[in-house]
Simulated assay, not measured.
Amino acid sequence: MVVLQHKHSLYLIDFNPKYPHDEQVYDDEEDLIIKQAFRCPCAHCEQEITYLHRYYYKSDQCDYSLHKICKTFPTKLQHVSHSAHSLALFRDESPGQCHMCKSTPRNMQLRYGCSGCMFSICLDCAIDDVQYHTIYHPSHQHPLIPFCKHKQVSAKCDACQKEHRGVFYECSTCFRFSAHNDCVFQPKRLLIQDGTRGQFLGL
């Protein structure tokens, strides 16, 4: 088990500081293109930090960076799946199945576990928090969260206007916008405003 810690101070970066209430409004198309190109690894979950996460923490003295939500994970956790002992947040160098859901998520390396019992669970099972999956996309003014993330659904995607089957992201505020997972994470997509709704233009 590798316990997570860092000795330097961290400060919060906001990709859209002109709109401090989580609005996703981009006044400058060139600025959006630059932000879409940003990539850096998260030191906790080892997944990419991109402009879709909107916020991240960065060290003031080195290249250490964290997703905003990864910084808030408690180091110790009481969980119903293992009530005998508390679980510690750690990074496993040889990840395997989650003992609770039996899956092997892509971010399985960061998990909660009990070293004495050789028991560990993934973040999806440990953290019941929609913020963990929230993204901020220029296709919609409000934050987007996944729905039915553990099962496939068929619906029309508001981003590309086509029928899709799979995981969809929906608006966490007005619930009138949903986009398919493939469209949400498609690289180099621009929002073109047409007055009433956004349209995607693939590059």
Rank of each mutant, 00 (worst) to 15 (best):
T72R: 09
T72F: 00
F73M: 03
P74H: 07
P74V: 04
T75P: 14
T75V: 14
K76F: 14
K76H: 14
L77R: 00
L77Y: 05
H79D: 00
H79L: 00
V80C: 12
V80P: 04
V80Q: 09
S81C: 14
S81Q: 12
H82D: 05
S83N: 13
A84N: 15
A84V: 15
S86F: 15
S86K: 15
S86Y: 15
S86T: 15
L87H: 06
L87E: 05
A88C: 14
A88T: 13
L89H: 02
F90R: 10
R91G: 11
D92N: 14
S94R: 12
S94W: 03
P95Q: 12
G96Q: 15
G96K: 15
C98K: 03
C98E: 04
H99M: 02
C101H: 01
S103A: 01
S103M: 07
T104Q: 14
P105G: 08
P105V: 10
R106G: 11
N107S: 09
N107A: 09
N107D: 10
Q109M: 14
R111E: 04
R111Q: 09
Y112R: 13
Y112W: 14
G113T: 01
C114N: 05
C114E: 06
C114L: 05
G116C: 13
C117W: 07
M118W: 03
M118D: 08
F119W: 00
F119L: 02
F119P: 02
S120D: 09
I121G: 02
I121S: 02
C122L: 06
D124Q: 11
D124A: 13
A126G: 07
A126F: 05
D129Q: 01
V130N: 08
V130W: 08
H133G: 00
H133V: 04
H133S: 05
T134F: 01
I135T: 02
I135V: 04
Y136K: 03
Y136L: 09
P138E: 07
P138T: 04
P138Q: 05
P138R: 00
P138Y: 03
S139D: 03
H140W: 06
Q141I: 11
Q141H: 12
H142K: 08
H142M: 10
H142P: 07
P143H: 03
L144D: 06
L144E: 06
L144V: 06
I145V: 15
P146D: 06
F147C: 07
F147W: 12
F147S: 08
C148Y: 10
C148I: 06
H150I: 07
K151W: 09
Q152K: 15
